[in-house]
Amino acid sequence: MKVYIERTDEWKEVNAINVQEIFQKLKINPTTVIVTRNNELITENTKINDNDEVKLISVISGG
């Protein structure tokens, strides 16, 4: 599936069955992002399908 990383503004192709696996494969710290699937917020245990649009939105913002 394609995963969008907001912080670096890029799409990456990832083979994963859930969000935790995406974090592991992309080496992303789970405390630094929220995850949406088809524009709905999801938890880290949520299973995902190949045709889902997954976005990792950074929680860090300068004040």
């Binding site: 405390t31 929220i34 949406t36 917020l41 950074s58 929680v59 860090i60 913002s61 300068g62 004040g63």
Partner: peptide
């Protein structure tokens, strides 16, 4: 936490493309 606040902002529809300060 920042993660809770971002989740709340997202669920309430307050999300713009919040960016980090370039000097940060």
């Amino acid at each position: 936490t920042e993660k809770e606040i971002t989740s709340y902002a997202f669920l309430k529809g307050f999300m713009d493309k919040f960016t980090e300060c370039p000097h940060d």
